[in-house]
Design a protein around this nucleic acid. Structure first.
Lengths: 130, 130
DNA sequence: GTGATAACAGTAATGATTATTATAATTAGT
DNA sequence: ACTAATTATAATAATCATTACTGTTATCAC
């Protein structure tokens, strides 16, 4: 774990994830970090995003629609995909309830439930008023 | 809807989905249907699987790990991915509870929640006893 | 500083899926 | 049943997101 050297690029990627409100794709991160490091490559962005996710300093959000997204907010929470504009938003939920879902599932499964991925679909406030 | 012609290939794909216990990938379906139609192409399998899913005669299960899977069981239910063997199993849950999740999420989101995708991770009974 | 090691940029490769196109099968009209 | 119109097929090419590889450069322990 300590055998991970510092890199300006990774620091910049993390900085961007922490400050942005949205849930950027690797490509979006790439376009932004490029302003600071014009020669950064998309492969480096992917590698560092996955490194950050492994270290628990970021969260990878897999969506079946389009590419994966990344979130600097590591508190356990869910996400909503707006089916109109495609935007991804946070959905904070009681951690207690999150555990409850696993427990409930265990009752219906003859094995062990460790975790789950939950993604909501709906309409965001912006697209809703129309 | 009626402008959909019959095809032996699609019938065979559906037949396989209905009778198999598992949750095959497009490739697995391809390998099986091939026994009856040695000249079927993977593209045809994909197109018909998606057609069946659109018509509500099958369900597409998107997993972030590996390719999509398909299920002939169209009753609303969830799935568990065994983190040991990679197998995908059904997890029947009270439809009431499924609706409850959307309702609960709505309370924490300033917009509309229409649906959700939920995938569990755990250990299947077979891998568990070891 | 020096050298080992990890990170980098650039590019090639992969894997799953979708699009394209010419040919074949299926339905509909007569 | 015969022929034309329509739609599906097979084969291939294209796409998209992501990962792996290669040689070069930066970081860190000594």
């Amino acid at each position: 774990m300590a055998n991970l050297k510092y890199s300006r690029q990774r620091a910049s990627i993390k900085e961007y994830l922490m400050t942005t409100q949205g849930h950027p794709t690797a490509d979006t991160v790439y376009l932004h970090v490029r302003k600071e490091f014009p020669h950064i490559s998309l492969g480096t962005v992917y590698r560092n995003l996955n490194l950050l996710a492994e270290m628990g300093e970021a969260v990878k959000i897999s969506t079946p629609d389009g590419g994966d997204r990344f979130d600097g907010n590591t508190h356990p929470h869910y996400h909503v995909v707006c089916t109109t504009c495609g935007d991804v938003m946070d959905l904070m939920m009681n951690p207690e309830y999150i555990r409850t879902i696993n427990k409930k599932a265990s009752e219906h499964f003859d094995g062990t439930i460790d975790s789950h991925r939950l993604l909501f679909y709906g309409t965001c406030p912006k697209c809703g008023r129309r």
